[in-house]
Amino acid sequence: MQDETNQHWRVIGASVRGTSHVATDRACEDAHAYLELENGILLLAVADGAGSASRAREGSQEAVKAIIATLGHSLHSAAPQSEAAWKTLLETGLRETRVALEELAKAEETTPESSAEGDSFDIAAEKGYHPRKKPTKNLLREFATTLLVAVITPEWLAVAQIGDGFVVSQQSDLTIHNLTIPEYGTYLNETFFLTQEDYLAHVQYAVVAKTEEVRGIALLTDGLELLAMDLANKVAHSPFFVPILEAATQTSFTQTDLETFLNSERVCSRTDDDKTLLLAVQHKYVK
């Protein structure tokens, strides 16, 4: 562990199981990871494994680990200095993360096939009515996951996202700004995954040359969308984020407190899905 006082950011994150996953004894399929480099660059990632994928938990965990590792490696030496260069870097990171998932799937192909699934109706795969592939023939699909990644340097804020969930930043005047919005297919239970063929066509990028100070940032998965986003206007619900980011500036507020909140009756009566919230605030605001 690095000495916190030398760091620029205080990061608090939690991924907790939704009540529907508790009821059906399914693991939490959300994951998050972060890393602050010695040069002060902060990397944050969250992922939501697809409910339809049998290895969703491993998919989301591998995705956040791989994107942080690959981008961390590149950013160790030098950070991009143009919007285009940032997009290239993020895209390369996504490609390499996808390769990491392919490796997982490949390793799996040597093990015996899982049993047939019976009568099922695959809403996402029916898009365009391609004949449905047998899951055993496309193991990569079993690791399907969304992925959201954010990088903050003193000069830049760069975000890439595939699928739903979203990212907001908070300026020093405490205002909340959407960097991305959730991307669905036409319908609610269809989104986009890093594991699909055309994943690069579904990446949202937000690259901002920082003219204003970024006080804090938050990444979350879709389990919190109904609570944290005004869906009619497609903007973040500020009364959700302001108090949470404020709490994150207090040393008394810990990961356990965040988990308690995400598991609270108040939250669970609104959403039964897994949910992840990853918060970062500048250390100079920490009290």
């Binding site: 697809a50 339809s52 809403i123 996402a124 269809e190 879709d222």
Partner: peptide
């Protein structure tokens, strides 16, 4: 369907 989540594969009951 109404309780399903993004990406869920909804298994229909047998006809």
């Amino acid at each position: 369907v109404s309780g399903s989540k993004p990406g869920d594969q909804v298994s229909l009951p047998p006809v």
